[in-house]
Amino acid sequence: MKTQKSYKTHFLVLGILLLLSFLLNVSLGSVAIPFSEIISALFGGETSKASWEFIILDYRLPKAITAILAGGGLAVSGLLMQTLFRNPLAGPFVLGLSSGASLGVAILILGAGIFGGAIGGLLLSSWSLVIASALGSFLVLLAVLSVSFKVKDTMTLLIIGLMFGSVTAAIVSVLSYFSNAEQLQQFVFWSFGTLGNVSWQGIFILFTSVVIGLGLSIISVKPLNALLLGENYARSMGINIKKTTLFIILATSLLAGGITAFAGPIAFVGLAVPHLTRQYFTTSNHLILLPAVLLSGAVLMLLCDTVAQLPFTEYTLPINAITSLIGAPVVIWLLVRKRKMLF
């Protein structure tokens, strides 16, 4: 009898999808560039126009890489949260994690103006943005978690997550009231969510925080599987709950916090992708689900970004709007089809 099914074909399909959506993503944009030129630019060859090379290598490629990191990372953080809270509706956005990250960034950008220019300028490097955002989401997650030990009810927890979101939103509006127009604009643009403004140095930082987050998740694969039975069963199988919880929280805040710092709050990817992946991979084993969710998240984000780019026009839509437009119907579809949401 075979206990562990092999998912090689599933992963092959996902891999091909990722490659195709990556190529689609870099091929389409406001400027039409022939496909052969794109391939040539990607592999370090010459392009007919120098501007094309610049567009591809310094704009579209970093954007596509950011999309892969952000989509994969957010989806994995959603998977971790759903298992940690044993709640199918958990996700970085719903539980106020992204609002926490927003608060961190808001305090940094808007607070910089209030607390004086010199320190402000020093604070606004990419690293401090990441740290502020990760710290914000970490604190909110800790708060939600400490409450979740007291209330066992799913709905209560979600409402509390929403309340945290409202509180952080309120603090952000107070901060914006006292800050100048330029900073406010900077923050508003950040909150729209964008994948396009990340420099190669930023990508390096994002990559580092995503890799550390993923590493912590990989170490936690076995305890995560045990948690599927509930905390008491996990403990009875020798799992150290405190350590596991800490690892998962750290991983989620690094993933969601780091990504939110660079790409802004992006809705629904964390919530919807794990559910979609479970439809395709009929397993609950995190050893399979983790890489599957990572790949699916990356594919979905690349596709969303391709749409947000509004190919052949000069306009770019906020990525957050597109993921919500696609994600919300997916969640509704899952609920209607299965009558209830399972994780």
Binding site: R86, N225, L228, L229, Y233, R278, T283, N285, L342, F343
Partner: peptide, 14 residues
Amino acid sequence: PASQNLSVLELVSL
């Protein structure tokens, strides 16, 4: 079990 999506085989294997 917290996850209702576990298959019987997965659950026993845990």
